[in-house]
Design a protein around this nucleic acid. Structure first.
Ligand code: MN
Ligand code: MN
Ligand code: ZN
Ligand code: ZN
Lengths: 151, 151
DNA sequence: AAATAATTTAGAACTATTCTTAGAATAATT
DNA sequence: AATTATTCTAAGAATAGTTCTAAATTATTT
């Protein structure tokens, strides 16, 4: 994952994203994302975590960095309804499952060999650039918990 | 446009959505939606059109009606990134294609016999309640237009 | 009709995000 | 190294979409 000669494992990857200048704050934001990626944090959540690592950083900078990293393709935005944008460092094609009970967001991988677009009858001549799949429901843990309460 | 004994074909359907009280303004909002459904209008766009049919209607009421109709399942919200919520009266399961060139939103039907969730490896035990599929790209018309310019 | 409940209206308030501007940091050039 | 040009950050103002509030209107029940 490193590109130069000496690299600590912490300040890894992140530097070769389309000739992006990797500033300290971008590094920090990116690291927060890779660390919390499974949590799909919002900008404010990233801000809280980034501030622990770099107390001087501002919310505006976090927004700037997130936008820059998104533009560079290092990070992806996740939209669930019209809630605050969440961020995800998982670049594999995947869907998002939002549990309406615990408010958590889970990555859902593609079935082996499947193509996400294949089930949709897209009109000929159009060019697909991106696909966002948001599934809302109740996750396994919460579903089990519910059955405990009732029944 | 009447509500009493005689019913025009225009003021159809809309009244039996889960015992919803079909007020004049809900009727108007619903009719705007069925008329402009293919356009996937935003709340403000619905407002503009509703005002033509009922000049007294307010934006707040349009929001209220849209929420009520959504709750009753008469209408569906469409979320494209974090842009303004759009509304769609097409209740068939379908995806949305958003053209980044002309800003239009198109309904994309399921491939015959296909199941939208089947390509995703959902964890066992979870319950799916809704699925929003947003595809962004360039539509056929705009793509053709582009080829005309360049090349 | 009177009382009660639901709905609409107009505008204020709210929230996530974007924009603006000035100054600090960094890079490139001399 | 000093100068210049460029990029980046910080702080707060501005914006857009939406939700909330309270009063007025309309519908329903008693
Ligand atoms: Mn993800
Ligand atoms: Mn639609
Ligand atoms: Zn859950
Ligand atoms: Zn187009």
């Amino acid at each position: 994952m490193s590109s130069e000669t000496t690299e600590t494992t912490a300040s890894k990857a992140a530097e070769d994203f389309g000739g992006l200048r990797m500033t300290k704050q971008r590094q920090v934001v990116y690291e927060v994302l890779t660390d919390l990626s499974k949590g799909h944090p919002t900008a404010s959540e990233v801000f809280v975590n980034a501030k622990e690592r770099m107390p001087s950083i501002s919310l505006a900078t976090v927004y700037n960095c997130l936008e820059t990293l998104t533009g560079a393709g290092a990070v992806r935005q996740v939209h669930i309804d019209r809630e605050a944008t969440r961020y995800c460092a998982n670049l594999q094609p995947h869907a998002h499952f939002y549990c309406t009970d615990c408010d958590k967001v889970f990555d859902i991988g593609l079935e082996a060999g499947a193509d996400a677009a294949s089930v949709w009858s897209l009109p000929p001549g159009c060019r697909v650039e991106e696909m966002q799949v948001a599934i809302r429901g109740v996750c396994g843990a919460c579903e089990k918990c519910r059955q405990g309460h009732a029944a």
